[in-house]
Design a protein around this nucleic acid. Sequence first.
DNA 1: CTATCATTTGAATAATTGTTCATATGTATT
DNA 2: AATACATATGAACAATTATTCAAATGATAG
Lengths: 120, 120
Amino acid sequence: MAENIMNDICGNESTHPEIVRTVSEKLPDVELLYDVAELFKVFGDSTRVRILCALFESEMCVCDIAEVLDMTQSAISHQLRVLKQARLVKYRRDGKTVYYSLADDHIQTIFDQAFEHIME
Amino acid sequence: MAENIMNDICGNESTHPEIVRTVSEKLPDVELLYDVAELFKVFGDSTRVRILCALFESEMCVCDIAEVLDMTQSAISHQLRVLKQARLVKYRRDGKTVYYSLADDHIQTIFDQAFEHIME
DNA sequence: CTATCATTTGAATAATTGTTCATATGTATT
DNA sequence: AATACATATGAACAATTATTCAAATGATAG
């Protein structure tokens, strides 16, 4: 009973060497793709999506955003921090109040495409 | 020492009632925005981003993808499952081998915009 | 049927992350 | 000064998740 359980599982040689080679060449730098994933990770939370969509309409202060989303001011502030670090929102201070707005035009385009994907 | 620490923290009445009202009206359904976040969550992992970018070039079997990304075949399979559930990839079987390819044209557009945001 | 190989799946583990609570800034008013 | 209020921040907790390992399918050839 010499069960030869080798289970190569696609060992050394490729199944399709030429495809592996050309795709490996054309694939963008790992670091760039990592940054892309990081950007999408920021979009990948419903609270942040709702904040950005709210800011599509108008600049807003933290309190107003919290009221529109029916969430804690602290929770909103934490998420605005994430959006700020990703350079997706900018802010201006007026007295005690801080007003946030969108920092980038690409955002709306990206969201529009996402909507289209979901709708179809 | 009657320290009146009330800390309203934007209590009942809005700071900007008219903005809160109009934004609340225009904001898309929570469910739709939740779906948008779910889609971006799928894009928010560098392994999946690399898989999708690889598939931009050519359809590929699981083993080849694993070799291009220098990762376990099992890890790739798990992620392909996520991409499949999100209707982002489709597959065809040919004997023992399963070939994956992109299921949607929006993906490339979304990624292009993401690249632009990062580059600028 | 058995052996082999590509792929899938399930459980376990480690790491990441969103919210809450409490507290700390910062700014204006008295 | 002290008070009030908008916002920010830090620690803690719960929940989610990507990878690994082991084992199970599924498919073909002998």
